[in-house]
C-alpha cells in the first residue's frame, strides 16, 4: 500500500504526541513525585469517627507536628462544612509536609484545595490520607478548600480555608 509522505508525517506526529503525554505523566510521578490518593488510610466507623486514632491525636485546627517538618491534621467533612476549616481555618507552617486525614460521617464529599492538584474524594467509612507539600510563605498565605462532590442542598456553601504561616509566626504561636 502506498502511503503519502504527508500522511506518514502526521501519523508520526500523532504517535509522538501520545509518547509525549505518557512521558510527562511518568515525569510527574517519578520526577516531581506526585502520587495518587490510595486506600492506605484504611477504614473507619462513620458513627464513631472521634474514636479513630487520627482524630484523637490530630483534630486541632493548628497542624500537629508528628516529625521534623512533618505535620498532620484530621478533618471531618460534614453537610455542609469542614471541621476544622470552615469555622476556624486550618493552620500549617511554611515549608512543611502536612498529612490530611479526612473522612465523613454522612455522605460522600470532596476536598479540593482550590487551584492546586490537591483533590480527593471523602467517603463515609473510608479514611482518606493525603500528604501535601507546602512551600514558602511569600508564595501565598491563604488557600480555599471546597467540596467538589455534590453533597446536598448546602453543597455550594461548603468551603473552608487553609492558612500558611511564616516560620517565626508559627514558632511565636506555639509559645503561648
Amino acid at each position: 500500500m502506498e502511503i503519502h509522505k504527508y500522511e506518514k508525517l502526521w501519523f508520526g506526529l500523532a504517535l509522538l504526541l501520545i509518547v509525549g503525554f505518557i512521558a510527562t505523566i511518568t515525569y510527574g510521578a517519578v520526577g516531581a513525585g506526585v502520587s495518587m490518593v490510595s486506600d492506605d488510610g484504611g477504614t473507619v466507623d462513620p458513627d464513631s469517627i472521634g474514636d479513630h486514632e487520627a482524630f484523637e491525636q490530630y483534630s486541632d485546627a493548628r497542624a500537629t507536628e508528628v516529625d521534623d517538618g512533618e505535620y498532620a491534621v484530621a478533618v471531618r467533612a460534614i453537610q455542609f462544612a469542614f471541621l476544622p476549616g470552615t469555622g476556624e481555618p486550618i493552620e500549617v507552617p511554611e515549608n512543611s509536609e502536612v498529612t490530611f486525614y479526612v473522612t465523613s460521617p454522612d455522605v460522600i464529599h470532596g476536598m479540593d484545595i482550590v487551584g492546586t492538584n490537591v483533590n480527593t474524594m471523602v467517603i463515609p467509612g473510608q479514611m482518606t490520607e493525603i500528604t501535601v507539600e507546602f512551600g514558602e510563605y511569600d508564595e501565598r498565605e491563604e488557600y480555599g478548600i471546597i467540596c467538589n462532590e455534590f453533597c446536598g442542598a448546602g453543597h455550594e456553601d461548603m468551603a473552608g480555608e487553609i492558612h500558611v504561616l511564616p516560620e517565626d509566626e508559627w514558632e511565636g504561636d506555639s509559645d503561648e
Partner: peptide, 25 residues
C-alpha cells in the same frame, strides 16, 4: 493544531497541575 494541542498540554500539565502552590506527594 499540533502546536495548539502540544502547547496547551504543556501549559496544563507543567504550569496548572504541577506549578501551583502545595502539591500532593
Amino acid at each position: 493544531y499540533f502546536l495548539i494541542v502540544a502547547g496547551m498540554w504543556a501549559f496544563m500539565y507543567f504550569v496548572e497541575f504541577l506549578g501551583r502552590g502545595p502539591t500532593v506527594v
